[in-house]
């Protein structure tokens, strides 16, 4: 039995598990007992209003922040208890697309994508070039390898960041607001590339986004963070019809009256 009484039974492998995670900044409580589970191969989307702490949850998953209380299990390890070396081993199985892509601005796009390969493998330069070109092609950036991040548009930077996140076939990929700052066409492009790469590489994905309801199309599960807690963790179609008042208010605020008719159709 899971949040909001929904049944969630599965024998699949748990990739990420939060148990009662609490986090405060000074006297401000941000996360108050977060429980969350991400199963292998699924795409979890965490939504919520700005400033609720969605990125804080993501930073806990990445081991960039430690909780004040509770457990954060990632790929079978409680990453709040392991040392730096063990955390590095866990992170080798990650890929992360940061909100602003976080490309190293002193390196070309090619070198940015090649960076994890050069640092973590013994591949020859020929093998690296082949792999990097394949990933750049996957995100439709095959002609931009020589460019520097400052020469790229916002959408291109995100795509380069995605290529870098995927270069070593990660098991889990984290997306922090993947479409923030992009127009509708560029956002759709990122969503298309997400589907394409996920289908090809088969990774588990965690997406933090405020781009509801569009982001629901990518999700296997949607979690709503509000009032310092995960209110529900449900498949998107159930999420949209959920009677939890906080969820209802979020759904109405983000989907508006246009969506109401669609909802009634679904209900009918």
């Amino acid at each position: 039995m899971k949040l909001d009484g929904s049944l969630y039974l599965s024998s699949e492998e748990i990739v990420i598990e939060f148990q009662g995670v609490e986090k405060s900044f000074g006297e401000q409580l941000v996360l108050d007992g977060i429980d969350l589970t991400v199963m292998k191969g699924e795409t979890l989307v965490i939504v919520g209003a700005s400033g609720q702490g969605k990125s804080v949850i993501l930073k806990h998953m990445l081991g960039l922040m430690s909780p004040d209380g509770g457990k954060v299990n990632v790929l079978g390890k409680d990453i709040t208890k392991i040392g730096r070396r063990e955390l590095t081993e866990v992170r080798k199985r990650f890929g992360v697309l940061f909100q602003n892509a976080a490309l190293l601005d002193s390196m070309s796009v090619f070198d940015n994508v090649a960076l994890p390969v050069r640092e973590r493998t013994d591949y020859t330069e020929g093998e690296i070039a082949k792999l990097v070109m394949d990933r750049l092609e996957m995100v439709d950036l095959e002609g931009a390898g020589d460019k520097y991040p400052a020469q790229l548009s916002g959408g291109m930077r995100k795509r380069a960041g995605l290529a870098r996140a995927l270069v070593l076939d990660p098991e889990v990929v984290f997306f922090d607001e993947p479409t923030t700052g992009l127009d509708v066409h560029k956002s759709n492009e990122i969503y298309r590339l997400f589907r394409k790469t996920r289908d090809r590489l088969g990774y588990t994905a965690v997406i933090v986004s405020h781009d509801a309801p569009k982001i629901f199309k990518l999700a296997d599960k949607v979690a709503l963070l509000a009032e310092k807690k995960i209110q529900v963790l449900l498949p998107p179609e159930k999420f949209q019809l959920c009677d939890n008042p906080t969820v209802r208010s979020f759904v109405l605020a983000t989907m508006g009256p246009v969506y109401d008719s669609a909802r009634e159709e679904v209900m009918a």
Binding site: L62, G63, T88, R91, F94, F98, A102, L103
Partner: peptide, 9 residues
């Protein structure tokens, strides 16, 4: 943060 997440010290 990106370097850390790429398992690069």
């Amino acid at each position: 943060d990106a370097l850390e997440c790429m398992a690069i010290d």
